[in-house]
Nucleic acid binder design. Sequence first.
DNA 1: TCAATAGTGTCTTTTAGACATTATATG
DNA 2: CATATAATGTCTAAAAGACACTATTGA
Lengths: 253, 253
Amino acid sequence: MTAPSRPDDHATGPTGPTAPTAPISTCAVAVDVALLTLRDGRLQLLLVQPDAGPFTTQWALPGRRVRDDESLDDTAHRALRELAGLSAPHAHLEQLRTYGDPTRDPRGRVVSVAYIALTPTVERHAGDGPLASGRARFFDVAELTDADGPHLAYDHDRIVPDALERARSKLEYTALATAFVAEPFTLGELRRVYEAVWGVELDVANFRRKVVHARDFVVEVEGTATPGPGGGRPAKRYRRGGATRLHPAMLRG
Amino acid sequence: MTAPSRPDDHATGPTGPTAPTAPISTCAVAVDVALLTLRDGRLQLLLVQPDAGPFTTQWALPGRRVRDDESLDDTAHRALRELAGLSAPHAHLEQLRTYGDPTRDPRGRVVSVAYIALTPTVERHAGDGPLASGRARFFDVAELTDADGPHLAYDHDRIVPDALERARSKLEYTALATAFVAEPFTLGELRRVYEAVWGVELDVANFRRKVVHARDFVVEVEGTATPGPGGGRPAKRYRRGGATRLHPAMLRG
DNA sequence: TCAATAGTGTCTTTTAGACATTATATG
DNA sequence: CATATAATGTCTAAAAGACACTATTGA
């Protein structure tokens, strides 16, 4: 399939159909994925080491060019699979926004559709994938936000803050936090998601009350979780409820 | 400027750098704009009549192909200018999401970056622009949501509900409602924004209290507005405050 | 036993919703 | 005058935040 001549110029402006042809061409379209997860109670972001292109000395979000007949979502999954060895079909994946500044890639015009992906903690791979070889790595987002943290390739330093703000914001009004935990989960695990993403400490009792009162946020299931090495009362176990938007919401102070 | 060979494939996956070249090409990239405004107290959407392409019998969102060295925001403004004669440099413009289904345009692969634009009521143009000639028109969104309403070109029937939901949602947590009114405005005008976008009736007194208590949502200015033909007490006038996110929020029931 | 985590209850403050009352305009 | 809209006040219910208290585990 080749790109059509000028689709979507489906109506004619004041200049009329005989206006001189504007400098319109096709663009390279890429998908970049900001995969966020919790590791050791800290929010971490997946980055990869480019071994081609103009940014081989810097870390970058995993990204791939969109193939013909491939949906944008499929490209996002392929980027995670090919660049990080992650087959994450059940990960939460949603579009962040599209970055189209004409100068964002020094090699030419590349329009990038950025995604955020959220997964429960990914076990470190024992094989020979990019995560094992070190070509892909998880970074603390606190480290990336610091001024002395690594400077990312392309305009990915602009994408990452947008991704973090999206995640922080959607934790308030949607059930997105459950994308960070595997079922069944405890309310302690869910609370640590909020604490890591927001960077705050939450009152245990009030958190529990708000989660339970939010309609269809979580559903209690059978059994209890065994306490950690430090002891503690066994926690009830929950699964995701049907809610997408939370009522009432889990507001940040 | 020509599209680069394979930018953003900046790292190499498990297949290695010598893997066979995948069927990657460039895409046509377009911007489509869902411009929402209030007319006669009803929420309306701007649509244009395509006079080229495969959908000349249906209405469509104003859209343009992205030009070389043109930002996506610039393309959105140009689409409004060329297809509707609207020069709206001060309109609120934000990205909605990007639609990239390989079959969304029957002529070939077109990735469309959708925007929403919000403006105060647009005066009907007396000249010979698309709005005067009828090639561009405002439609009640209630009419479009009905099953007997017009069926839109391309996948624009999928974009419009997303745009409406975005606007409805952002009215809750952000100061976006002020994008629908011209300064200075009254709280009655602002309330009618919420009522039109949400399709509900709001208690006048409670609405006022919530707006005034939301930090930096609105700022009172000098003078009062003259009542309408039916009379009524003159309303205080306000301008936008500095807030983007509202605390506390204006929640829908 | 103590420390740690989970879960319940209680009190105060804030906010939301329903609605009465007053203020000031038009016709 | 009646009517319309704006603005304020009052009451109740819901929700948030601070925090005491109990429950159940591991070490």
